[in-house]
Simulated scan of single mutants.
Amino acid sequence: MNATLSGFKESIIINVILLGFLAFPYYKKTILVLFIPCIYLLLYILPTFTTIIRAQSWIQGKSNETAREQAYQTLLNEENDQKIIDNNWEFLTNRFSETSMFTTYLKTVPQQYPYYALDILINSCYMIIPRIFWEEKPDTERLAMERVYRSGVAQRSSPVSAKTRPVTDGYLSAGVTGVFVYMLIYGMLAQALCNLSEKLFGGYQLGCIVIFNSIFQQLWRGNTLEFMLNNIFYGYILMLVIHFVLKQTKSLQRLYENHTHHSFL
């Protein structure tokens, strides 16, 4: 239920998909039959649901529970059918794919604004610093949204969260070259973290499925660099801490196979 309070569609969809994967080995026919109706239902309600959550909670400052209740009432009210249809059409034609947003950046950078060069990376490094050590640290969401507003992808008064993705950040930094370098490093880093998780926790099941996917979930679809670098840095530290604690409590045992180190629960 906490996922419904986030204001993001992805968190809800991912939780539904994970539940489906977990239940599939035991209820294959049921999952296969319900998959398409569930996806249809999510696509029907989520655009309006998340928009209301953002407007009520993010902008008006109401509690998450109040925002969620308002969203439920809107969806259940027949008078809002046309509003729901309009939101769905806007989502499916503009937001379901981020291609249209990316083309806007192509039109404005570097024609109207210069490339950001290392600015995005520097800002992302600032985000790693804990606020307890820097009380005036900029708000991550606002900082990431500045280039969105600057290029006219979204208006400041809009409740949408249309932050850039890895490909876009790469392009805004250095054009096509930036995309190539950024995505190459992104892929190598994601694979390295996954391999390390498997090595530390004894294989695919615990290392990749549980640890890697739990800590580095943002790497599934990417996020703006300000959020991702923070997640990767502290996620890496958290992964090492978990491994250390499990070793100290002797929950992990070491195996040596083919002269390589493995560990398992």
Rank of each mutant, 00 (worst) to 15 (best):
L46H: 02
C208L: 03
L225N: 10
F180K: 08
N64H: 11
F91G: 09
Y40S: 14
A190S: 14
C194R: 09
T30F: 13
N213F: 10
N231T: 14
A144N: 03
S173P: 00
T104H: 03
Y105N: 03
S63F: 05
P130S: 13
L32P: 00
S251H: 06
N123V: 00
T74D: 02
F102C: 01
A55P: 00
N87D: 13
T74Y: 12
F180I: 15
T168S: 14
K83F: 09
E198L: 03
A67W: 02
Y236R: 01
S124A: 15
L76Q: 13
T164S: 15
P114Q: 13
G187W: 02
L200D: 01
V245P: 00
Y113I: 14
G187L: 09
T104R: 13
Q112H: 13
F91V: 08
T50H: 02
S63L: 03
D81Q: 09
V153S: 06
I12W: 02
Q56S: 15
W58Y: 08
N94Y: 11
S124Y: 10
L219P: 03
D169Q: 07
L121S: 14
L229M: 14
N64I: 00
M183L: 14
F35C: 14
I237E: 04
L255T: 10
H259N: 15
T66V: 13
R68V: 12
E65Q: 08
V241A: 09
F96H: 06
G152V: 11
Y204D: 13
F264P: 00
R68A: 13
R95C: 01
I215T: 04
G187D: 05
E146I: 02
R142S: 10
R54D: 07
E65V: 10
M127V: 06
E257N: 05
Q56Y: 12
F49M: 06
T99A: 13
A3W: 05
L225M: 10
P130V: 10
N94I: 05
G207S: 09
Y126G: 06
L32M: 15
K9H: 11
R165V: 14
N258V: 04
T224Y: 10
E10V: 15
C125S: 14
N77H: 11
F201L: 10
I14F: 07
R131C: 03
M228A: 13
Y256C: 07
T66P: 00
L106C: 07
E226I: 08
K28M: 15
L246R: 08
K62Q: 13
I31V: 15
E10Y: 06
E65I: 14
I59M: 12
K163L: 06
A162Y: 06
G175F: 08
E136W: 05
S124I: 02
F35S: 14
Y27L: 11
V241N: 00
D86L: 09
A23H: 02
A55C: 00
L42W: 01
G170L: 04
K29N: 12
Q218A: 08
R95T: 05
T140I: 15
I39F: 15
N80L: 00
S11W: 01
I215M: 04
T224S: 07
G178P: 03
E226D: 14
E198I: 11
M145N: 12
M228V: 12
T48G: 08
N123I: 03
L196S: 01
I59Y: 07
T260D: 01
R142H: 04
C194K: 09
K247W: 08
N94Q: 12
G202K: 11
E141K: 09
V181C: 10
K28I: 13
